[in-house]
């Protein structure tokens, strides 16, 4: 455990020593803020119209009109953010040879992997926290139901952890971080699109493929519904990816 924290700390240190951390936080902070601004502006407009008796439809709610789209959007954005965070994890150490220090120190492979993954996850959490500032504003003047917000963020965290583990796996496979980043992006995209490919198909394969889609499992979280099936899916995907990462690191030794 001490080794995991040590490596995690080192990862965070190098994220914040390079522009990556700031770039990720700035880009996604801005995008998120902008989307939030638009959603709230529209919400305010419609509410005003409704108050004057000119709108139609049911009652407006901060949760449905602002928070849910915002969370869904954040889920999509993670797709772009994760490759930026994970691409260097192992590829860079392989390129510069520092992997030799890690692999010849008395630490277990799994400690190295967990440390790196945790470091990446913490950076991701920083970005999530930034986006939470927007929600905090809502709490100040609206009266959103907090439970769906928390469930949504739990979903984002689980989905992020999952994608980050996949990114870490891909990063062990090359010494070029750009390649690692691009591959991670396309694989995440594929996992994300799986639900579209099979939307109108109800065969067994389609159900299975659909099950693999990261988005399908996020939908419930987005609605504020906590379903243990989704949690189990994310946890097992995480576990599987981290396990494969350890296999990949092992095979690196055989090939290196």
């Amino acid at each position: 455990m001490k080794n995991v924290l040590l490596i995690c700390q080192k990862e965070l240190r190098s994220y914040f020593a390079s522009p990556i951390a700031y770039a990720v936080m700035a880009i996604f902070g801005l995008i998120f803020g902008w989307v939030f601004y638009n959603a709230s502006r529209d919400f305010v407009r419609y509410t005003l119209l409704q108050a004057q008796g000119m709108g139609q439809g049911g009652p407006m709610s901060v949760n449905d009109q602002i928070i849910r789209p915002l969370l869904g959007f954040a889920g999509t954005i993670a797709l772009f953010m994760v490759p930026m965070i994970t691409m260097r994890l192992f590829a860079e150490e392989k390129r510069t040879g520092t992997i030799e220090l890690l692999l010849t120190s008395p630490v277990k492979d799994i400690e190295i992997i967990l440390g790196k993954w945790l470091g990446a996850l913490l950076l991701y959490v920083c970005v999530l926290l930034m986006s939470m500032l927007n929600i905090a504003l809502l709490v100040l003047w609206g009266k959103p139901d907090l439970r769906p917000v928390l469930v949504g963020y739990l979903g984002l965290l689980l989905q992020g952890g999952c994608l980050l583990a996949i990114g870490a796996l891909i990063s062990t496979m090359t010494r070029n971080q750009i390649i690692a980043g691009i591959a991670t992006f396309f694989i995440s995209l594929l996992l994300w699109l799986l639900s579209w490919f099979t939307a109108f198909d109800s065969s067994v394969t389609a159900t299975v493929v659909n099950y693999m889609s990261i988005v399908t499992h996020f939908e419930n979280f987005g609605k504020g519904v906590l379903d243990s099936k989704d949690v189990v899916f994310y946890l097992s995907m995480m576990f599987l990816s981290l396990f494969l990462t350890s296999r990949s690191l092992e095979s690196l030794r055989w090939r290196a």
Binding site: A17, S18, T96, T98
Partner: peptide, 11 residues
């Protein structure tokens, strides 16, 4: 000490 010293330039 490997052939290329395993150093982190940002440290």
């Amino acid at each position: 000490l490997p052939e290329t010293p395993p150093l982190y330039p940002e440290m």
